[in-house]
Nucleic acid binder design. Sequence first.
DNA 1: CTGAAAGCGCTTACAG
DNA 2: CTGAAAGCGCTTACAG
Lengths: 367, 367
Amino acid sequence: MTTGKQGTRPKASQTSKRSTQAITVNDIAKAAGVSRATVSLVLRESPLVHVDTRARVEAELKKQGYIYNRSAANLRRRTSSSIALVINDLTNPFFAEFAAGVDEAVGARGYVTLLGNTSESPEREEAVLASLMEHQPAGVILSPAEHSDGERLERVLGQRSPVVVFNRELTGAHWDFLVLDNRNGARMATEHLLELGHRRIAFFGGHADSSSCRERRAGYADAMRAAKIEPLPHWFVETAPTRLAAATRADALFLDGNAANVSAQDAPTAAVCYNDAVALGLMLGLVRHGRKPGEDFAVTGFDDIPEAAFAAPPLTTLAVDPRERGRQAAELLLQRIGTKEGEERQTTAPVRLVVRGSSCKPKGAAS
Amino acid sequence: MTTGKQGTRPKASQTSKRSTQAITVNDIAKAAGVSRATVSLVLRESPLVHVDTRARVEAELKKQGYIYNRSAANLRRRTSSSIALVINDLTNPFFAEFAAGVDEAVGARGYVTLLGNTSESPEREEAVLASLMEHQPAGVILSPAEHSDGERLERVLGQRSPVVVFNRELTGAHWDFLVLDNRNGARMATEHLLELGHRRIAFFGGHADSSSCRERRAGYADAMRAAKIEPLPHWFVETAPTRLAAATRADALFLDGNAANVSAQDAPTAAVCYNDAVALGLMLGLVRHGRKPGEDFAVTGFDDIPEAAFAAPPLTTLAVDPRERGRQAAELLLQRIGTKEGEERQTTAPVRLVVRGSSCKPKGAAS
DNA sequence: CTGAAAGCGCTTACAG
DNA sequence: CTGAAAGCGCTTACAG
């Protein structure tokens, strides 16, 4: 075996030389006294090779610590054994759970996950996708950053790979879409508060221009309309979808357009919140304003993040099971990889109302 | 260009055919009227090619939507542009932040992250690593599952790849190791409580056989020894490192070996907790037992998870900046990939005490 | 400055 | 059942 001299200058490159010369099928073939073809057949568990030969080869594989070069095999076979997973915010437990679910499901089917985190930046998103595509993934699971441009992304991906988009609508692109049942979820939360006796229910938090916030507001509106209640303008409060933003905006629920306190009969007694982070923030804000969430003001969230159950009071919310969503996204993608072509599909994942202490009856309601 | 017929049966395999025929350097070369070599030089931004030729080739690349096949290039050049990241629990925000930091840093250097999540299972860990190694990563960052077997893992990895181990010691393996300064952190927390006037300080939570718990206990012991205080046996309480486990074990602090209540002068007035999850759980448990954390019992945590600042009372803890640790692990690995060989190194990352409301003075102490 | 040729590690008809 | 040969998409000395 000739070892090529290293004639290249160590120019600054983004890639690295592999450690030492790796063991190849050639080495195994020579040592076992067979051809490379035979070794390959053994590796791929073909029944064509004689049991003794197989044993000899396998012994040699073990002995030399052979590591299969799946990239080379993929190149030759024109296949891929990876999927690209691009996440807008891996730091958010919701998406981390989702990622774990994806990795679990694709791993079980023999694929490896190529990870990219975009930190909600559309620019990084494009760069990350372009970089991942060069590694020839069999498909892509994309949880888009806010304000992503679907058309540009479609150009980056070259519509060669199957793609499943998760969670946020991506206008301009024509890909499969897995989304939570935001509308029904918010409707259920609102109905729950109505059944407890609330009439003045606010919708608190989120950016109204995001697709998920729009859907949740629509579900809230569905329930209010069915109850023949016309929401007042100041019952809608927009915030960044974070705890901190929500905490500082709590007072907006009790102020009218002129920043004057609203009368007691106009002040909401409950709020359907955009998500759990916002709901937890609102509860903090309420406490600062002398109101007790779960006693004199009812709150619901969305997501059922781990903290929801441990909050004081525990948060009534909608469980979405992000890990299962990850598995589901993986299944949808693998299915699409298997069949190719066909219309793009939208899949709506169910959510489940979890009632806890934060959704109290209105003060003075009959029990 | 001849298109090979697809003569293969669609046998159930773990890999998938790529969508359609991809555009290759060959296609570009033909269309631009140059050789493949020239296209390759353009792609690699060689100064050797004439500016006009370059322009022609680049126009063609854009036009056909060429996607570089980095796997093929890596095969030919015997390089790698991926690193494997194996995480014991991606669902834990601490590790999710770490993963985001790794991805950010390796991405900035032109590498892609191959992700594997082991869910704390040593079996999955071996399987995941074996699978990732077949994709020829330039190196591995491993946050080991509990009870991992370093020697077995070393065999799986074939000591070809550089490895950086994070967070948990891996006995039997000879790899670089990045670890938090657990001992100093716990010492600082303990000293802080001592300065507030506490004398009877417990160490609460964690499995004493884990390396991080051992180190934290040692730091606690350092501070107590320096203060000439001999901890009582029931001041050590072991729990699983979760909130729930901690909440249910809170009473153990106030019971002696015979499960009888300890006398008031033996009961601890403060606890250094193994981590934040445990500290938050303990606070819940204390409330149930009629004690008010942050008023008549002081608590400290470890990690500074996002909830710590929002707890009631806010949790005094040690900030470890997991995202920065991720970047650091990536830098260590890339450095090792660059230099090869040499002794294994241990790097200890600093931690920072963050004082919040949960660490109160002991009841009745002079202010 | 450009092209022809060899080769990275694998797989796969095709002969024997 | 096994081996020789071609080729996946790239890169890289080596000639010209």
